[in-house]
Amino acid sequence: MKILIAEDDRETADYLAKGLTESGMNVTVVANGPDALFHATQQQFDAIILDRMLPAIDGLAVLRMIRAGGIATPVLLLTAMAKIADRVEGLESGADDYLVKPFAFSELRARLNVLIRRPATSAMPAETVLRVRDLELDLRRRRVTRGGSPIDLQPREVLMLEELMRNSDRVMTKTMLLERVWEFDFDPRTNIVETHISRLRAKLNAGFDTDAILTVRGAGYTIRTE
């Protein structure tokens, strides 16, 4: 996995580079806009972590130029401000995801993993049925079965399961699920995700020995393919 990190804050860049290298990724670090633009256009990366504020050429401008150049590499935008307008602007400029500083490394890694489209282990987008191990989700009829027996789920529980199944083997964090299932861009102080996961888990696990959803401590939830 080749990752480009464009971040002018030395400490953040080192922290990211160290963490990602330890996760087995090949990391290139640049500290300004022109370098980011040069590397992004000259080499093939699996993902780009781009700080919104970069010297010489602003991160957003770099992003627009990369996209205008027809480069579709997934971009995770980092920002120091949680401004609503910034978020909209970032996504409109072609960012695939958006993370506000300060963030936990586990959050960044989880988002990065979801951004990097690995050869599908679960389902192609065009398919109408998602299959992970003994779980099946009929995308059109919104029906779920485990080991062939139907499971009665609420619409939003199906949505949450769909997110987990589409990203099987990758960790979905609480904030990612909040964003994708309920479209909440804020962090409620109530344990919404935990409660919903435990309900979903109870419904999926009834009558089975293995846990359908795994909790990754300090990070989030995942569904394993094996």
Partner: peptide, 9 residues
């Protein structure tokens, strides 16, 4: 959406 999110908790 909000009611759905908070009901379980």
């Amino acid at each position: 959406r909000v009611a759905d999110a908070f009901r379980a908790s």
